[in-house]
Nucleic acid binder design. Structure first.
Length: 576
RNA sequence: GCGAUAGUAGUCUAGCGGCAGGACAGAGGCUUCCCAAGCCUUUAGCCCGGGUUCGAAUCCCGGCUAUCGCACCA
């Protein structure tokens, strides 16, 4: 699949040379799974994140929060990462190969290997041959390899901490605060952009699988029975290529459907999932993913988490890596809130008023404290509390107090039937989670933007980045650096910079060379100051993709450039 | 993690026991002036650590990194 000099190598060579992506700690030999964003890469990544914010924070109205990258252990006990985010491994004493302990045991005829604890697995492995070298394993130690980085918090009585494997958990743990912030209404959403960490056993594939990476996640809390999106009409007619479960046997081709049809036909579980599929498509195309190399693939029932109601991945076609997941969009139901409620003991529900309050008959048990007090003394309060939750028979009620069972005769309490008005109910929201891998998006955009074309016998290398994400927005060049052209160009560059435009002044080398330098880093426009500028005050604007030029007055140049970058003005409309 | 292959200037590459060479890029200058032109000058390199050898970029061992295969991939 990977011929030498394939597009990946060309893109990464350019990215390294021009300051998009560098290997981390290169002077110390580098570290697999970590990258640095150089000056242009950091700028481009930030612009992509800001476009993402434009969609999720500004348009959707989901405020951004920021949580620590280190979390205490119970968070990840609740999320399932402490248990489920690790593999049981062992090392063959003969060939030193690391093996998945459960796989070896299963190969040796152990039926329930996947669910056995470590000690039992070690027992099951005693007589088993190593799957690598064939020698008998004997007494091997089975250990957990957890994909989370761990650390200690503080000296002394250290609390165990983990570097977060996803940003989502911070949003879940802030749920009660967020619910208050959004004034006790559903639906609402919160987002987070930040670093996450996974100690991958063997990261390959450059920027695609990192040990430290940037995620942009949204958690949208919705009523479990209200999965109709209030703004669904915005994307109802939006067409997206969808590859459903059933289409994936053999060589399935995605079907292009409107979101309305996808939900009506049952392919996508609900309007929320469909809405964020469309919105994701919108974002990805906006930042420069080629729509012809983008599809949405539904998780197969076997790969989908057991709690998820539906899950779709946005995948891009990479020449090097095949289909690569960029975004996962899942209906996670109430799994996360339920888990955190259970581990923390805090109720993670919203109290929602009913439209019509209903009357409900309730049986209330009123302990007779005058009688209970002297009889049970110190335990009286505990007995009374237990009694109120008990289900009494005609003779009395049996309650559990201090680990033992106690029978309380009916004479010690009253049972009162009363009718109460129920004005609302506690609801545990369901969570819709679109989760974006920002680094993968950056790579996808670089690969899809990269182009080589022949111009007058020379290879012209261009990054066709959307103007909105290009690190440098405009180049400013004096045609020659004398006769005052350079002075005027410097003034124009300063003027643009003062107007918030990232402009790069360059007077070195022939004009064609300077255009090429900017083409290679994706700068969408170049302003050239020539002799005519000195006569009539006009400059030329050159468009990167067409290499065409138009002449405009230098007054109002800032507005034109801003308009071009924002997409409010088309280059063609400036033409003669 | 295992196996295979590789690592020479910013990038690409030649050299494969005996002075490390080139192209492009970069910087300075001359010249030309709207798409990587030319000329001059110049910066800059053998992945790291051991070993063998009179002598190692070159051979051997270990490590790191990259690519491929295996394994792994919430």
């Amino acid at each position: 699949m990977a011929e030498p000099n394939d597009i990946y190598e060309k893109v990464m060579e350019l990215a390294k040379r021009r300051g998009f992506i560098w290997p981390s700690a290169e002077i110390y030999g580098g570290v697999a799974g970590f990258i640095d964003y150089g000056p242009l890469g950091a700028q481009m990544k930030r612009r992509i994140e800001d476009i993402w914010r434009g969609f999720y924070v500004i348009r959707e109205g989901f405020y951004e929060i920021e949580c620590p990258t280190i979390g205490v252990e119970p968070i990840y006990v609740a999320s399932g990462h402490v248990k489920g985010f690790s593999d049981k491994m062992c090392q063959c004493p003969h060939c030193e190969e690391y093996l998945r302990a459960d796989h070896v045991a299963a190969a040796n005829g152990c039926g329930n290997a996947a669910t056995l604890p470590a000690e039992a697995l070690a027992g099951a492995l005693k007589g088993a041959p190593c799957t690598a070298c064939g020698e008998e394993l004997g007494d091997v130690r089975v250990f957990e390899f957890n994909l989370m980085f761990n650390t200690q918090i503080g000296p002394g009585s250290q609390r165990k901490g983990y570097l977060r494997p996803e940003t989502a958990q911070g949003i879940f743990t802030d749920f009660p605060r967020l619910l208050r912030f959004y004034r006790d209404k559903l639906p609402f959403g919160a987002v987070q952009i930040g670093k996450s960490y996974r100690n991958e056993i063997s990261p390959r594939q450059g920027m695609i699988r990192l040990r430290e990476f940037t995620q942009a996640e949204a958690e949208i809390f919705v009523h479990p029975e209200g999965k109709k999106h209030p703004r669904f009409s915005l994307y109802a007619g939006y067409r997206v290529p969808l590859l459903g479960c059933s289409g994936q046997e053999g060589k399935g081709e995605p079907v292009e459907l409107t979101m309305r049809d996808a939900v009506a036909g049952g392919l996508v579980a609900n309007e929320y999932v469909a809405y964020y599929i469309a919105l994701t498509h919108d974002i990805l195309v906006t930042v420069g993913v080629d729509p012809a190399r983008l599809r949405f693939r539904q998780h197969l029932t076997t790969e989908r988490a057991h709690y998820a109601a539906d899950c779709w991945d946005a995948e891009i076609l990479s020449k090097r890596f095949g289909w690569v997941e960029l975004v996962g969009i899942a209906d996670r139901t109430d799994y996360d809130l339920r888990a955190h409620a259970s581990v923390s003991g805090v109720a993670l529900t919203a109290y929602l008023p009913l439209e019509i309050p209903r009357m409900e008959k309730r049986k209330r048990i009123i302990p007779d404290m005058k009688a209970l007090g002297p009889k049970y003394r110190g335990q009286a309060k505990e007995v009374a509390d237990a009694l109120m939750k008990a289900d009494p028979g005609p003779e009395g009620a049996e309650v559990e107090v201090g680990g033992g069972k106690v029978f309380i005769p009916a004479s010690l309490y009253q049972v009162r039937e009363e009718e109460v008005e129920v004005r609302g109910e506690e609801v545990m929201p369901h969570v819709i989670e679109p989760s974006y891998g920002i680094d993968r998006m950056c790579y996808a955009v670089l690969e899809h933007s990269y182009d080589e074309e022949m111009v007058e016998g020379e290879v012209r290398r261009v990054l066709h980045l959307p103007a909105a994400i290009a690190p440098v927005q405009v180049g400013v060049f004096p045609l020659v650096s004398r006769d005052g052209l350079d002075t005027v160009a410097t003034e124009i560059a300063a003027l643009l910079t003062a107007g918030g435009i990232f402009a790069e002044f360059d007077e070195s080398g022939a004009i064609g060379r300077r255009y090429r330098r900017q083409d290679e880093i994706g700068t969408p426009y170049a302003i050239t100051i020539d002799y005519q500028t000195m006569e009539d005050g006009t400059v030329t604007i050159r468009e990167r993709d067409s290499m065409a030029q138009v002449r405009v007055k230098k007054e109002g140049l800032g507005d034109i450039v801003r308009g071009l970058i924002a997409g409010n003005i088309s280059f063609v409309s400036l033409g003669p």
